[in-house]
Write a protein that binds this DNA or RNA. Structure first.
Lengths: 285, 285
DNA sequence: TCAAAAGTGTTGGACCTACACCCATGT
DNA sequence: ACATGGGTGTAGGTCCAACACTTTTGA
């Protein structure tokens, strides 16, 4: 839509200096699925979901872990800012990403008012990345509470998210409260306790929720897998994210349409070789 | 997580004035479902999805239509800012809402660099609201293009969104391009032409997509319906949003679990009275 | 009487669950 | 030989699309 003459006149005189502006960061929750080797030569490695955290080099929260993020540069779009940050700080450029949510609570950063535009990134990289560590993710729900009214309901629960690697264990507890009264619905997520910087455990929680939800109705899981994989590998990834066990025979039939078999098989496994498959990306019309 | 002594020292000296900051707005796409009366005494009114647009009183885009929005006040959270804006400008407080997406393209506002944190609002209000008009939404997809590579695909289409009421018709065309190469996936939505302010037609498009997607796996549709409704009304709402026809008998069986019958019936309709139902909100455990 | 909507019944097929069963491998 | 994972088969149930059919009303 074109601007009018009146608009142009107005714009020549416009100054935004009189308005309050918040600082804005982009923050990337980087996830991958890793094979945890077992000692038993027969057993397959177990799949484990991991998040990449960076050790902060400057205050606030000096030496604490946080997700990758940066204040935005006004010369770039939000997506560009996020990509640049991830490239510079973590050293990766090849990943799936989507915007998650924009956090705008007033006290979420002790420096000043800061909005965080958060992203979820998925990669199938094996290597470690720059400036940080991969942490195993363990998530558990506790103290579930449920109340109903005539015109709605109230649900409350605690979510424990434990992030750990060989050297460190970070404990985090969130409180989630969903309330519905008539048409109004509110979801409040508050931090009970956290061992990582800012409200970044909330960003991680959002990413985990998004991933779990999208499993059902998208092909998002293949972004966490190598190009060639066995059906049991695929199944183990689903199980790790969903936190439930699936029936093997049924799983194979259900996912049959999503994958194409290759003429390759695993070897040296202490059990029957298994066929490798690739994601069949043409099911999205 | 508590701040260290070092952090506290740092914060005393901290000044954010040296950093670039963007302006930030919150913008609300307000939707409702309205009954369009037919002249035939036998026929039911048709359901029509509508969006509420405000006529701009100041430049830029003076006298054009836009969605409800405001620059944020740093004394409020994002959600609070949006609610205040909607209350003050439009006069409603009772609605379902969720955050949609944060837009950060560089030239999206002619004044200065502005981020938009957008929201989708759903209401079942019948009345007109302050400072604007309801517009019927018609959406049509054109010139679909599909290409496949060895490692991905490219999809392109044009989306025509026409917003109209008794006195005005606003034409808008978006171009949507989805590309996937290996793990990288990009979705680009660009404005081909628009009759409303800024990139607000994009916000409307996002809201419509979100609504359509959420129909399948949530109870979101009941936020657009009155408390008491007939099953045919419910079905017509689904059909209006999805843009397809559903089979009546099957629809009744499928939605049976979502609703509870009341001991009330419609009257004076020129056809058999129909039972009224209410949303059964206890299916979310 | 009739057009429109309300609502029920049925049939064949697709898909899902649960479980049993056999196959192939390296040590 | 055997533990482990790879992979197939099947019986019963559920759900779903498609279609036919009956009911009720106001003008």
């Amino acid at each position: 839509m074109k601007l009018s003459q009146e608009d142009k006149k107005f714009l020549e005189l416009y100054s935004d200096s009189e308005y309050d502006k918040p600082s804005v960061t982009v923050d990337a929750v980087i996830l991958r699925m890793i094979d945890k080797d077992t000692n038993n030569y027969r057993k397959l490695p177990q799949k484990k979901l991991q998040v990449f955290l960076l050790k902060r080099k400057y205050p606030p929260y000096l030496n604490c872990y946080s997700v990758a993020g940066t204040f935005i540069d006004l010369n770039y779009t939000l997506n560009e800012s996020m990509k640049l940050c991830v490239k510079n700080k973590v050293g990766i450029e090849n990943y799936y990403y989507e915007q998650l949510y924009t956090f705008g609570e007033k006290q979420r950063d002790p420096r000043t008012r800061v909005l965080s535009v958060s992203y979820m990134l998925l990669t199938n990289m094996e290597e470690n990345l720059f400036n940080g560590e991969w942490f195993d993710i363990n998530i558990e729900e506790k103290s579930f509470k449920y109340e109903t009214y005539q015109n709605g309901y109230l649900k409350e629960k605690d979510v424990e998210i434990t992030l750990s690697n060989e050297s460190e264990t970070l404990h985090n507890v969130l409180h989630v409260k969903v309330e519905k009264r008539d048409i109004k619905q509110t979801e409040e997520i508050s931090i009970v306790s956290t061992d990582i910087a800012f409200d970044h455990i909330k960003l991680i929680y959002y990413a985990l929720q998004r991933l779990k939800n999208k499993l059902e109705y998208t092909d998002i899981i293949f972004n966490l897998l190598p190009k060639k994989f066995t059906l049991t590998e695929l199944k183990n990834c689903y199980e790790e994210i969903l936190g439930t066990k699936l029936l093997d025979a049924n799983f194979r039939r259900k996912t049959a349409g999503l994958v194409s078999p290759l003429n390759e098989f695993t070897q040296d496994k202490g059990h029957r070789p298994s066929q490798l498959f690739k994601h069949n990306s043409l099911n999205n019309l």
